[in-house]
Design a binder for these strands. Structure first.
Lengths: 140, 140
DNA sequence: TTTACTGCAAATCTTTTGCATCAAC
DNA sequence: GTTGATGCAAAAGATTTGCAGTAAA
């Protein structure tokens, strides 16, 4: 879970090839604290290995997505972002005015989850909820 | 062309020009039941008036967005979608298994909204929330 | 008359794809 | 040796922008 372990193992066991490019991509994703975009992954890798192509990043992300090893989220801003599926839950408050992203504690959503289960018998998957609105600074 | 919509009035009062293109765009948006994309708006208009350009649609949508007259939502699929901000609130519980969409009463979200305001000073825009999960029938 | 708005074309930006080559297994 | 993975370049799809002409107020 810390190093390029979990996802790498999974890929290997499923018979996918462990190329250097893939391992670098996995390493960047797994060591990233926030959701990260394909471009950001690529930039980090290119700093050390300039000839890794961004299409390889996209292809690897698509593979990981298909295997449910990463989660995809759209936080606005024209880019899709990725996150290891086995890492902790991330909730975000996104300011529609200035783009600030505020991390939201999971406890804030617990009551909602309970309500949905109780009143709608619906098991909500609240792992990557993005709530849009307006932050303190952007309220006139 | 009939121009007695809420958004039209608002634009007019704010001093923006009511061009035929704008009115057609507004008409399509206001008469749409679902969230609609820029391309869909354009397609509908072009059927009658072939020389309306899609960049005009985008520019109008940006204006309406800036004035909080339409809400933007990303439902995946590479396109951003739009919806009149003053139309009824849309909350949905979407089952990831069978695709069932359950309408969610607004009251279920009120406590969350309060919490966000109180603890994060964040004014949440919960008009078009989509919560993914698993419905009654798909729980085993 | 004034200048905000439009159409057009070209530019951007993100993501995907075809294809020949290469390397993990 | 197979064949899946990569690099490259080009394509695709959505959205934005520069500019000159047009029309709403």
């Amino acid at each position: 879970m810390n190093q390029s372990g979990y996802i790498t193992d999974k890929l290997s066991k499923l018979g996918y090839r462990l190329t250097p490019q893939r391992m670098m991509i996995l390493s960047v994703i797994e060591n990233s604290d926030n959701h990260i975009s394909a471009e950001e992954i690529h930039t980090q890798i290119v700093a050390k290995y300039p000839n890794v192509n961004i299409s390889t990043v996209y292809r690897t992300l698509e593979l990981l997505k298909r295997l449910s090893l990463v989660t995809e989220i759209n936080l606005g801003g024209g880019q899709v972002r990725y996150h290891p599926a086995n890492k902790g839950h991330h909730h975000h408050l996104i300011c529609q005015e200035c783009g600030t992203i505020i991390d939201l504690d999971e406890s804030a959503l617990a009551p909602l989850k309970d309500t949905l289960l109780r009143e709608y018998k619906f098991i909500a998957d609240l792992r990557h909820l993005a709530i849009f609105g307006r932050c303190v600074n952007c309220q006139r």
